[in-house]
Nucleic acid binder design. Structure first.
Ligand code: FES
Ligand code: FES
Lengths: 143, 143
DNA sequence: GTAATAAAAGTATTTAAATACTTTTATTTA
DNA sequence: TAAATAAAAGTATTTAAATACTTTTATTAC
């Protein structure tokens, strides 16, 4: 569904969100540890997210990545778009070059429903929403 | 969602199904052409499907791949399982090693619904079902 | 039985994602 | 201002999927 990098990105941002109240900044190493993902992958992806304005970064001593109130309100759709792009929400389930109702593949209607369900999930859930269960200990970012 | 190979497999089997009545057998080259997929990929995948009993094959002159009545009744789930396995129906949406309600990720419930929707699609639609719209010209296997 | 045909099988190459490494730049603190 | 810190950026390697090539085996037709 999503790339390894994109799933790591969502977990990284939720981690930052769950630490939002502390006001702290977090280094690449620490974030990678907390979400059990590859350090280098996480480094690259955090830079992309910062450049896209989805998280904030600060260089130098006491620097690191952090998230601000406005960013907490963003849907995870924003993260998916920044990392994987919008293909996942538009691609044909059987690999036709273009998904369209005018020239559909045999599973078009049913697949479109599934795909729209996933898009809905991504556009309705905000970082803030997903931090709640993590903060209250009923959902986890690591296995 | 599914690998390129798996999507090609579904299209290949639907193509064979749509030609079922003719009683003909079809070569790798012809099938690959008809579904606009790589010839080598199609060759490999047809062998796997034949070995799994999802389609039939015959060597020699006038040989090729074909499908029989019983096989037309199979859900496309059988194809997905033969090519990609069952991971797609069990994996965590955020990449945790194991998806479980006891140790869920923050999107577990919603993602599980989406995933179940896709499984439902795959287990309810049979080859036969998906051949109908192709035969009546309202769905297509190529762009 | 020989030749032709087409799948089966095994191996090799290509490509893109993921992961790893290195250098540079900005910021803070002393 | 100098040293330390940590992100930013660029490059390289690894890995797995996809694609390409080659050889073998089974079947048919003559
Ligand atoms: S055309 Fe295949 S999903 Fe829309
Ligand atoms: S634990 Fe993530 S989808 Fe179930």
């Amino acid at each position: 569904m999503l790339s390894v990098t994109c799933k790591a990105a969502i977990k990284a941002v939720i981690y930052l969100g769950s630490m939002f109240k502390s006001g702290e900044k977090f280094g690449i190493r620490e974030i990678a540890d907390q979400i059990d993902e590859n350090e280098h992958t996480v480094g690259k992806l955090l830079q992309k997210l910062a450049k896209a304005g989805l998280i904030c970064s600060a260089k130098g001593p006491n620097g690191g990545f952090y998230i601000i109130e406005n960013q907490m309100k963003l849907p995870i759709l924003a993260i998916v778009e920044a990392i994987d792009g919008t293909d996942v929400f538009n691609q044909c389930g059987l690999g036709l070059h273009k998904c369209s109702a005018a020239h559909p593949c045999p599973i078009h209607n049913d697949f479109k429903s599934v795909r729209e369900g996933f898009r809905m999930l991504c556009s309705e859930k905000t970082i803030e929403d997903l931090c709640l269960p993590v903060n209250s200990g009923i959902a986890y970012l690591i296995s």
